[in-house]
């Protein structure tokens, strides 16, 4: 594993199998602390209570979908600066256009190879930090 990773990830997905898979691979392969939530409302409360380094967010969930969760995160000063990566099977052209306006670090398409997930997240995470450093350097 060459890329550094966020130490604390909050993963939101209504599918229990997916929550277990992501938590296992990030924890075992990369030593990441993974908290999980099963719905958008739970995620908003948890993110405000204890902001994670990164929020990994499913899009299609019952009730509040991931797009709405992202919008509400941005509207709350306690959560507006939390970096977000979307993890979703909805990756058609119209979907990607929509996500482009949400200010997320990236979009990971389902299905994905769980063994490659830490590396994929690391690339997006480090790419964002590189851009921030370039801005600071002027």
């Amino acid at each position: 594993m060459s890329a550094t990773l966020p130490a604390d990830v909050l993963f939101v997905d209504d599918d229990p199998d997916m929550r277990a898979l992501v938590a296992l691979t990030l924890a075992e392969l990369a030593g990441v602390r993974v908290r999980t939530c099963a719905c958008g409302a739970e995620a908003l409360a948890e993110a405000a209570r204890d902001p994670p380094d990164l929020l990994l967010l499913d899009v299609m969930m019952p009730g509040m979908d991931g797009v709405e969760v992202r919008r509400r995160l941005l509207a709350d000063p306690r959560t507006a600066r939390i970096p977000v990566i979307l993890l979703t099977a909805r990756v058609g052209p119209a979907d990607l256009d929509l996500y482009a306006g949400l200010g997320v670090l990236g979009v990971i398409a389902k299905p994905f190879d769980p063994l490659e997930l830490p590396e994929t997240i690391g690339r997006m995470w480090n790419g964002d930090r590189d851009r921030a450093a370039a801005c600071r350097a002027g």
């Binding site: 599918d15 997916m18 898979l21 389902k110 299905p111």
Partner: peptide, 14 residues
């Protein structure tokens, strides 16, 4: 559709 979506997203990953 919701069940189909879950299978579409999860099956390949598993």
């Amino acid at each position: 559709r919701r069940i189909a979506h879950e299978l579409a997203g999860g099956a390949g990953s598993f």
